[in-house]
Structures are given as structure tokens and as C-alpha cells.
Design a protein around this nucleic acid. Structure first.
Lengths: 178, 178
DNA sequence: ACCTGAACACCGTTCAAGT
DNA sequence: ACCTGAACACCGTTCAAGT
């Protein structure tokens, strides 16, 4: 006689995201997740091979959210950058997790699509990929440093972000002296 | 009667760095470190408050190495960028660790000095800090993505790095249309 | 078919006891 | 003064047994 399901993959992932945000990766334990969804830890292994698989699923869900967010904002680079930064501020732990070994690389491709589009508009097809990498690397590094509190030499961080974006666009735009 | 010291703070940190590089953060356990320096785990608590303190010391040592490396290379931006990238390739785990919560922020300041100098030469005093943040954020994000294997859409990664650096310099340099 | 208690290996940490 | 064994709490994981 089959026992009725007492939880679901989605519920587990949601619980994982909540625990991650308010306890960091160390708070995302199998026992904490299980107890939050009303089950015992061993039951989680019915749906995830191990903790690493669960963490990856949590990261993938976050990336999907991020991708939807970027899609919804159009292809203007400033809008994209702001949306990216807003996501990082709202889900700092998830943002950090995304760029860790447990990151699901193929999910990242979808989230990167809007940036690639914006880069193409700016520099054309040939250099679109390089330009997208430049922009993404800058924004990711900046946010990571901002979240870790590495910006302690003073100065306005918001202004530094805008300054960076402007300089990037200037450096990427086809310049007139050619 | 005092027992003679069987290890030292430096030896412990060195052991920690080695374990980190070949087993990731998960390989950096108190027991593994202890056994590598010929002591039992509880002895480590004579010199480090807890594992986190040890991990921070490991990160600080790595940052010091990085700083020395950047100092030794002068203030040319391309040289600095290459040295930064070389360090990340040689010590990927340490590089990742540096930009984690356990990062010792004040040690980062020293390592950032050469970049700040290069930025000042490029854009002048007023914008030196913003420019340094742009460059550091880009390089850090780029290397982090490279190490994590996030660059899977093809294209030459070396070339993308050079392209990014060129665009950055172009965007930062005082441009002629003013 | 899903869930559980019990068990195991491993980890961080404390502490009284050794020298 | 430094080191240790023993102990504790906690974690990930397995598995036989329940329904």
C-alpha cells in the first residue's frame, strides 16, 4: 500500500531557498530542510541523490528567477544592470551560491541571453560574446565585492556602479577615430 | 614542565593552504590539518579560536602572496591583470576563498594598492577609486567565472580577457571629444 | 511507493588529565 | 605551557522495517 506523498520536490527546493537566505549555506542542512517540509531527513533522498544535488537545485531555481527578471526588463543595458543588482541585494545568499561550484551551468545560459542581446546591439555580432562576458564579469564581480563588504575605502558605491557601467559602454561602443 | 611546541602557527597555515588547494574547502578540516602537522585536532585550538579563524588566516596568507605578486609587477595595467590571472590559475581554491565571507578585508586593501596606483595614472585622482573598482570587479568576476567553468558558449577565453582589458582601458581613458 | 528509526562515519569543539 | 583522549552535539547518508 503506497504511502501518500507528504511533500514535493518544489516544496523542498523552496524550503532550501528560505533556509539558505536566512542561515547561509551552513543553514541549509538536510535535517533543517526536512523538518521545514514536515518530513525526516532520510526521506529527502527519495528525490535528491545527496545534499549537493539539492543545493544545485536550489541554485538552479534562483538562476531561473534571475533569468525571468532580466527577461522582463528588456534589453537596455542600464535596466539590465539595475535588475541584476536588485536581485543580488534581495537574495544575497542565492546570488553568491549561483557562482559557486554547485552552479548549474546550463541554467546560466538562459539567464545570460538578455545580456548577450544587449551586447549584440552595442558591438555587433562578432564581438557580442566577448562584450557580454565583459559586462557580466564586471557586474558579477562588483556585486560579489559589494555583498562581501570589500568596498570599505569610502566613496559612494551606487556612484561607482553607475561610473563603471558608463565606462563599460564607452569602451565598448564603436569609437569615432577609426 | 612546559611541553615543547610540536608545530607552529605558520606551519598550520601552510598545511591549511595545501589541503585547501587539493581538496577544496571541504578538505580543509581540523583533523586533516592537525594530522598533517603531526598533532591532534584539539591542539589547533591553542592557536586558532575555531575553524573559521584558521580559514581566515589561510585566506589572509593567500591575499598577502597575491599582494606581493602584484607589487612585483609594476603598475602597468596589462601586467597587473596578467599577474592577477596567473595567481588565480595557480591557486584556484585560494582565489575563490579570498572572495568569500571569510575574507580578511583589511588584507585586501594592501593587495589593492597597485591597482589603485594604475587606476590613478589612467584617470587621475578624482576617479581613481571608481576606476580601480571597475577593473578589480571585472577581473575578479571574469576569473571566478573562468574557474567555475561558466564560459561554455565557445570563443577563446584568453582573447575575451584581452578584449575586456582593452575595452576597459578605452572606456576609462580621457576621451578626445570633450 | 513513500516514510521512518536506528545506525554509522565524520566533523567541530570542550575539557579534564597528562607531561 | 602545550598536548592528548574521551566525550558531546551535530551532520550526511544508508538501510531494513513499517504502512
Amino acid at each position: 500500500m503506497p504511502t501518500r506523498e507528504r511533500t514535493s520536490t518544489n516544496e523542498i527546493i523552496t524550503a532550501g531557498r528560505e533556509l539558505l537566505e536566512d542561515g547561509g549555506p551552513a543553514g541549509l542542512t538536510m535535517q533543517a530542510v526536512a523538518s521545514r517540509v514536515g518530513v525526516r531527513a532520510p526521506s529527502l533522498y527519495k528525490r535528491f541523490r545527496d545534499r549537493d544535488a539539492l543545493v544545485s537545485a536550489v541554485a538552479a531555481a534562483a538562476v531561473d528567477d534571475l533569468g525571468a527578471r532580466l527577461e522582463s526588463v528588456g534589453s537596455g543595458l542600464p535596466r539590465l544592470a539595475d535588475a541584476y543588482r536588485a536581485f543580488a541585494h534581495e537574495h544575497p545568499e542565492a546570488f553568491r551560491l549561483i557562482f559557486t561550484a554547485s552552479a548549474p551551468v546550463e541554467a546560466l545560459d538562459r539567464a545570460a541571453a538578455p545580456v548577450l542581446r544587449a551586447a549584440r546591439e552595442l558591438v555587433g555580432d562578432d564581438r557580442a560574446l566577448d562584450a557580454a562576458r565583459l559586462i557580466t564579469a564586471w557586474a558579477t564581480g562588483f556585486l560579489q565585492m559589494e555583498l562581501t563588504g570589500a568596498f570599505r575605502l569610502g566613496g559612494d558605491v551606487d556612484e561607482a556602479f553607475d561610473y563603471g557601467l558608463d565606462a563599460l559602454v564607452r569602451g565598448l561602443a564603436p569609437w569615432p577615430d577609426a
